[in-house]
Amino acid sequence: MNITVKLFATLRNGRDKIMTIQMPEGSTVSDIVTHMALPREEVAIIMINSRGAELTTELHDTDILALFPPVGGG
């Protein structure tokens, strides 16, 4: 299945902002973090199709995954 991955803030360091990757059916967010060799401890805010998600959430074909490090403001 094809997943669009968007990276933000420090997760962009040395990487593209947006990319499409191919993953086996049933892959989770955690699998993608491993596949992309992202620093796991820096992945704090996860959204799939603009909804909050967890590392264990399963993805589906054409999903848009957004990954953020811990950030705040206000």
């Binding site: 968007k6 933000f8 603009s50 957004a66 953020f68 811990p70 950030v71 403001g73």
Partner: peptide
């Protein structure tokens, strides 16, 4: 020690929220 108050806010300022709120709709 906290990544938001110790690092994130200093690096990007509060404007880091544009992309998060945009992504969250």
């Amino acid at each position: 020690d906290h990544p938001v108050s110790g690092q994130g806010l200093g690096l990007y300022g509060t404007d880091v929220l544009v992309n998060i709120l945009n992504e969250a709709g």
